[in-house]
């Protein structure tokens, strides 16, 4: 028997993952883009005019990177989670156990699928944000550090895709899935500094916020795009690389020990 290819099985699973979200592009791309658009319109343009930032940047410029990161994280998570959950529902998740795909191939294929959707929504959010910015400030929003910006976006997307894999493989029903979203991810996202700087908080809440991993993602991207951040960018990068490997281990474990049975 010829030596089997390592790349091909991974590539086909990745293609299937991308194919899946492209098939339902209305839900997977347009809906989150409309969300971002509304946030920009309500907070960035309407309310933002009355917010005094005490800096060279407008509230809109402060908001855009946060929204980009929020889109990437949300959509990377949603993509892997909903793909696996629908597979559980259809009963075809068990195929993953019978085909010769190793857990590492499965995890990376799903993660890149999630990252692809996350980045796509992120880029569209950036374009829409830039249009608003141009209209309001008559200027362009060029990245302060493209390398930091890309690093944070990619690590964020991959990490949250891993998280989506872990949660959906372990979950035994829809309730458990939505509990994780509603009680953990949503509060952490909104309290992670998308809409405000933690400098305005009482010291107690500021210190507590530093335990929120979302804070590092959001401020990392803010640093990459406009050069402003509540935390130091290299420190944030280090924290997030470590957390990414932790989430990778968690995702691999969930592939080994998670539930494949039909809902």
């Amino acid at each position: 028997m010829n030596k089997p290819s390592v790349f091909l099985p991974f590539w086909f699973l990745y293609k299937k993952e991308v194919g899946r979200f492209v098939r339902v592009i209305g839900q997977t791309i347009f809906t989150p883009v409309i969300n971002s658009f509304l946030y920009l319109l309500i907070f960035g343009v309407s309310l933002g005019r009355s917010i005094n930032m005490d800096s060279e940047y407008s509230y809109l410029a402060f908001l855009i990177p946060g929204l980009i990161m929020m889109s990437v994280l949300n959509n990377a998570y949603q993509n892997t989670a909903s793909s696996i959950v629908t597979s559980k529902f259809h009963g075809d998740l068990q195929d993953l156990r019978t085909v010769p795909l190793s857990p590492i191939q499965i995890v990376w294929a799903y993660a890149f699928g999630g990252l692809s959707r996350g980045l796509l929504v992120g880029v569209i959010t950036y374009i829409v944000g830039s249009i608003f910015y141009y209209v309001q400030e008559a200027g362009f929003l060029f990245p302060h550090s493209a390398i930091y910006l890309l690093a944070f976006l990619i690590i964020g997307g991959v990490s949250f895709a891993f998280l989506g894999i872990s949660v959906s493989f372990w979950a035994r029903n829809f309730d458990q899935m939505s509990a994780v979203s509603a009680f953990i991810l949503l509060p952490l996202t909104y309290l992670g500094g998308v809409f405000y700087s933690i400098d305005i908080l009482h010291p107690f809440w500021r210190q507590l916020s530093e335990f929120n991993p979302l804070l590092y993602f959001i401020n990392g991207v803010r640093y990459g795009l406009i050069g402003v951040s509540d935390v130091s960018a290299p420190k944030a990068l280090l924290v997030l690389v470590i957390s990414m490997f932790f989430l990778l281990a968690l995702a691999l474990r969930s592939i080994h020990r998670g539930h494949y049975t039909r809902w």
């Binding site: 099985p9 086909f12 699973l13 194919g19 899946r20 098939r23």
Partner: peptide, 17 residues
């Protein structure tokens, strides 16, 4: 959910390399 009979069989072939 999302794919045709032919697509499913092609994806599956890919998983086998």
């Amino acid at each position: 959910g999302f794919f045709t009979v032919n697509e499913i069989l092609n994806f599956l072939s890919g998983y086998y390399g």
